[in-house]
Amino acid sequence: MTTRRTSEQGTSVQKTALRRRKRASSYGVVLMALAALGAVYAVLLAPQSLAQEQEQEQQEPANQSMQVEEGRQLYLNGCSTCHGLDLQGGAGGPSLIGVGASAVVFQVESGRMPLHAGVQQAPRKKPRYSIEEIDALAAYIQANGGGPQLPEGDLTDGDLQLGGALFRTNCASCHNFAGSGGALTYGKYAPELTPASARVVYSAMQHGPESMPRYSDAQLTEEEKKAITRYVRFLAESGDVGGADLGRYGPISEGLVVWVVGITALVGLTLWIGARS
């Protein structure tokens, strides 16, 4: 029964991995450059012909099971201590049955998993696994219990204006108007969104980690989630036309600057003038 599920629901992860390999051969140079910025982004942006799709599908079953097996090995080595040998969970971590590939992408690609210590909220870290390994892990989790997974195609392929409006309605109240993050109760926090890749942003909405609500496709459609993802990436990548961003924290940092820089400089100048008269 488990095996059946594998072949059906592991598909998208499988495709992603395969596509990446193809691009490596055909657009090698482009990929090298883009990989530096974010391999996933590059992968999902590239156009895919129908012929390629079909070709891919023929190769899928074999690659898929290989990927799941690779994921299983990675899981047993890196995750099973806390989450259990059969994903059943334990004292150290929750069960992973049914969390879906999306949760794996969020937790592992943002470096939150593996967790290094029991803290209030898993902090963002440098990711331990490569994108390929993450996809393998995701395929393994997806194959054992299913759950939400990232849609295919460009995750930032949404309407920027719609994304902005949805972001302000759904996200800004915790993550701040510019995605700079904000405090929650008892030491928890809504993290800054700038370092989050498109995959992490999208999967966070699907997965609803920590205190964050889960946005199913009924609450925010795939199109709307892509719009939000695009807006978040826009916020992260767009420069500040007005000069230094001061952390984009709003009036707090502005007030600090006016005292620490503005008034301090001017009082210094009065001292200078006073000393010369």
Binding site: F177, S180, G242, A244, R248
Partner: peptide, 22 residues
Amino acid sequence: AQINPIWLYGPYDASQVSAGSQ
């Protein structure tokens, strides 16, 4: 130094509020 980047806040809508509204 950028101050009050109103374009990031977006138009006022009574149903919205941002963290860090000070």
